[in-house]
C-alpha cells in the first residue's frame, strides 16, 4: 500500500470515530437530564462533528476519486466504516453515555497528543485543534464518573453496570494493523502500545476516585479495522444517510 493510501485509511478511521460518536451524542439533543447537561452533551457532539469534518476533508484530498468529505460520510456503506465499536454503542442511559465518553476521550486525548508531533503536518494541525476540545470532553466525563460513582447507590450501580458492559470494547482501541505499522515507521501515526499504558493509568486513577471497580480484561470484541461492526451501526447510518441516499442528485 502506498503511504498516501495508508494515510487516507488512517484519516477515515479518525474521522469515523468522531462522526459516529458525535452522532450518538447528537441523538441526545433535548434528552439531557437537565438543561445545562443537555447543552454540554450536544456541545461535545458539535466538537466531534467538527473534528470529523477536518479529517474527512483531508481524507478527500488524499483520495483521488473525486469524493467530497460529505460523500465519505453520507455515501459510504457500513462495511467501509472503520470507527471503533465503542463509539457506535447506543445511549442506553446517562451512565452508558458518560462511561463511553470517558473511555473514549481518555484514549482520544493520548492519541491526539501523540499525533500533534506527527511527521504529517496536516494531521498534526488537525490534532492540535482537536486536542483542546477533547481535553475538555475528558474532564467533563471524568467529573461525571466521580459524581456518579460517589453520588447515590443507584448512580454508582448504573455507572458500574455501564462500565462492565462497555469494557469489552476497549481492547480494540489499541489494535495495530499493517497501516498503523507502516505509518508508525514513517513517524506519521501513533504507537498505540505506548498509549495503552498511559490510558490504563488514567482510567485506573479515575475509577479509584470514583470508587468504581475496573473490570477484568476478559474477552475483547474486535472487528472495526475490517469494517465489521455491531448491529447498532447499520441503524445509525441508515438514519444519518437517509436524505442523501433518497435524493442522490440533490445538493443541500
Amino acid at each position: 500500500m502506498t503511504k498516501k493510501d495508508a494515510l487516507f485509511q488512517y484519516c477515515l478511521r479518525l474521522g469515523d470515530d468522531a462522526v459516529v460518536l458525535g452522532h450518538r451524542l447528537a441523538e441526545l439533543c433535548s434528552r439531557g437530564p437537565f438543561l445545562e447537561e443537555d447543552l454540554a452533551l450536544t456541545n461535545i457532539a458539535l466538537d466531534l462533528t467538527g473534528q470529523a469534518q477536518l479529517f474527512f476533508l483531508y481524507a478527500a484530498e488524499l483520495d483521488n476519486k473525486g469524493q467530497s468529505a460529505d460523500d465519505l460520510v453520507y455515501r459510504r456503506p457500513e462495511r467501509q466504516f472503520y470507527n471503533h465499536l465503542l463509539c457506535e454503542q447506543p445511549n442506553t442511559d446517562f451512565g452508558y453515555t458518560i462511561v463511553r465518553q470517558f473511555l473514549f476521550s481518555a484514549y482520544h486525548c493520548f492519541l491526539l497528543e501523540d499525533l500533534c508531533t506527527s511527521q504529517d503536518e496536516h494531521l498534526a494541525d488537525i490534532s492540535k485543534k482537536a486536542l483542546k476540545e477533547s481535553r475538555y470532553h475528558l474532564s467533563h466525563a471524568t467529573d461525571w464518573m466521580v459524581r456518579l460513582g460517589q453520588g447515590t447507590k443507584e448512580s454508582k450501580q448504573r455507572a458500574q453496570q455501564a462500565l462492565d458492559a462497555l469494557w469489552m470494547y476497549t481492547g480494540e482501541l489499541f489494535e495495530m494493523d499493517d497501516i498503523d505499522l507502516q505509518l508508525l515507521e514513517a513517524n506519521v501515526a501513533a504507537d498505540l502500545h505506548t498509549i495503552r499504558n498511559m490510558w490504563q493509568q488514567e482510567i485506573a486513577q479515575t475509577l479509584k476516585r470514583a470508587g468504581l471497580q475496573q473490570p477484568e480484561d476478559n474477552f475483547m470484541q474486535t472487528g472495526s479495522r475490517k469494517g465489521v461492526h455491531t448491529e447498532h451501526l447499520g441503524h445509525l447510518l441508515a438514519e444519518m444517510q437517509s436524505l442523501v441516499r433518497a435524493y442522490p442528485e440533490a445538493a443541500w
Binding site: R31, G32, P33, F34, E37, D93, F94, R147, L148, G151, T152, E154, S155, R158
Partner: peptide, 10 residues
C-alpha cells in the same frame, strides 16, 4: 423522569 437519578446523584 429519566434524568431524576442523575440529578439526585449530582
Amino acid at each position: 423522569a429519566e434524568g431524576q437519578w442523575v440529578r439526585e446523584a449530582a
